[in-house]
Amino acid sequence: MQITLNGEPYELDQPLSVDDLLARLDLDPRRVAIEYNLSIIRRPVWPQTIVQEGDRLEIVNFVGGG
C-alpha cells in the first residue's frame, strides 16, 4: 500500500499505527508534530490511529529560522 509522507509517495507493507510508523522511521515522538489527512492528530491518539492506503501525513519539527 502507498501513503503520501511529507509530500512524497511512501510504501508500507500493511496498515500500521502512527506510533509504529514513527518507530519505523526512527523518529523521536517527542520532537515531532503530525498532520494526518490535513488535521492535526494529537499524541494520545497516535497509537490507535491506523495509517491506511492513500493517507496523507505531514511530519514536522523545528528547524533554525527567523
Binding site: 511529507n6 511530519i59 519539527n61 533554525g64
Partner: peptide, 10 residues
C-alpha cells in the same frame, strides 16, 4: 528565539 516549522528530513 524564533524557529521555523519544516518537514522532518527522513
Amino acid at each position: 528565539v524564533t524557529v521555523a516549522v519544516r518537514r522532518v528530513d527522513l
